[in-house]
Amino acid sequence: MYCSLNLIKLREQYNKIKSGDLGEKKVLNEVKTLGSVIHNSNISNKYLNGKIGNNQQDIVLISKRGLFIFEVKNWISSSSLEIKDGYLVGYNKDGEENNSSYPHKIVDQVLDHKNAILDLLIKNGFKAYKSSEGRDGDSRIHSFVTNANENCELSDHGATILDVKDINSKISSYPVVFSSEDVEKIRAIIEKNQLNEKERKHLIFSGDFLDKMKNYDFYLQVINELAKKV
Rank of each mutant, 00 (worst) to 15 (best):
Y174F: 10
Y2A: 14
R187N: 14
G23E: 04
S169P: 07
E181Y: 11
R11N: 14
K18G: 01
S139G: 13
L7N: 05
G158D: 13
N115G: 02
Y129N: 11
L120H: 01
N151R: 05
I161P: 00
L154M: 06
N193Q: 08
I122P: 04
N215K: 15
G20K: 04
S172C: 10
Q221R: 12
N168K: 15
D182A: 11
E71K: 02
F205H: 13
P103W: 08
V222A: 08
E30V: 09
N149S: 11
S172A: 14
F126E: 02
L34S: 04
R135Y: 08
K9F: 10
H202T: 10
S143F: 03
D136G: 09
L10H: 15
R65E: 01
A227Q: 07
D58S: 03
S172G: 12
S4M: 03
L121S: 02
I117R: 01
F68A: 00
S206P: 00
V37R: 09
W75H: 07
D156E: 11
H113T: 06
I76V: 14
S80E: 08
N196G: 14
T160Y: 07
D119G: 02
G137Q: 12
I62M: 03
A128C: 02
S139Y: 15
E133N: 08
T146K: 01
V164G: 04
E225P: 01
S4Q: 05
D163S: 11
V31S: 00
K16V: 05
I167F: 00
C3P: 10
V176R: 11
N92R: 04
L220C: 08
N15M: 14
D138F: 01
S179A: 09
H202E: 14
Y14N: 12
D119A: 08
S63P: 10
V37D: 03
V60S: 00
V176P: 08
G23D: 05
S172K: 14
E153N: 12
E97R: 10
E82I: 02
D156R: 02
K185C: 08
Y47E: 09
N124R: 01
V31N: 00
K165D: 07
E225Y: 06
Y91F: 10
S44Q: 06
I43A: 11
D182F: 12
P103R: 08
E24M: 10
V183Q: 02
S44G: 09
N6V: 14
K16M: 06
S139I: 15
G20F: 04
V176W: 10
H202K: 15
V60F: 01
S41L: 01
Q109D: 09
G137R: 10
L10Y: 14
V107L: 11
Q57P: 02
C152M: 06
R200I: 15
I38V: 14
L162W: 03
N54K: 04
S139M: 15
N99C: 13
I190R: 00
L111R: 02
N55K: 00
L67V: 15
N149I: 09
N15Y: 12
I189E: 06
K212Y: 11
N92C: 09
Y102D: 10
H202L: 14
I204H: 06
N6H: 12
G53Y: 05
S172M: 11
L118P: 00
S41P: 01
R187H: 13
F68Y: 03
K201D: 13
K32E: 09
I171H: 07
I69L: 08
